[in-house]
Amino acid sequence: MPANAVEVKSLSKRFGAFTAVDAVSFSVEKGEIFGFLGANGAGKSTTIRMLCALLDPTSGTASVGGFDIRREPEKVKRSIGYMSQRFSLYDDLTVAENIRFFGGAYGLNRGTVASRLPWVLEMAGLRGREGSLARTLSVGWKQRLALGCAVLHEPGIVFLDEPTGGVDPASRRRFWELINGLSEQGMTIFVTTHYLDEAEYCNDIRLIHAGRIVAGGSPTELKTAAIRHPILEVACDRPVEALEILQKEPWVVDTSIFGLSLHVGVGEEAEGRRLLADRLGRAGIAVRRVDRIMPSLEDVFIHEIETNAAPGPAAAGEAKP
């Protein structure tokens, strides 16, 4: 077995004239949690579907678990688990029947299924609800049951496509604890998300925008390496108007709006503070507070998109905090 669980070289996918994934290359180490971050439509799901051998790439190569996705798609499928953003379960089957069906579909024998069943129930917190129809479960439960079904056959790598979409914060936290647990057992986790705060759980991250990888590294590396200029958090009146004014200033590196305050990237801190107060003062906007802050992943993401790529239709602002 190679050292890397996933190895991707210049992988592309075009649908007609539209390039969904544009020559991406990266590798995923065994046992790590690898995060694929980007807005909706950035090419995350298309990449995952190619790696799961559900979709043929237009060009480029990739290997998953040591198997080539083009030449050995069946072997790739045998060595992975996959969970889509829709938590694909059978609504008219009970919890236990769903688990047993997927067990049978993965070719597990009855004994193995019987021994894995309590583990999945425990993990999903569904002990005592084996007989409930899947349609009656809340979203959080469905999500954990879908994860349980996806790793029933104990694959070496599991692909999670937007696993936390539409799930409440408490369930999301619980889900990430499960992911950490699986990772500690040695499973490689490949996860996509557009929630930037979730990226903090990952060992390694790639930011994808309009089909291209714009930045990569661990969360800490990204924050320190990608952004070298100071970021100022500005609390002021009429933030939207202030944002529009500052975007036109040559000394402003990048700006974005966070709730009621602005994040403004400047060339140098003291000079930046002075110019900022001056410009907003002239516009009659009262500035209440200016603080230098550590950049968040969101700042990194916005900075990378503004410097690396032409403004695409999927604006970074869509990415939810």
Partner: peptide, 13 residues
């Protein structure tokens, strides 16, 4: 429509 087809394609069926 439900997305279970992808799940079945990954499986050994």
């Amino acid at each position: 429509e439900r997305g279970t087809m992808d799940q079945l394609r990954i499986s050994s069926l």
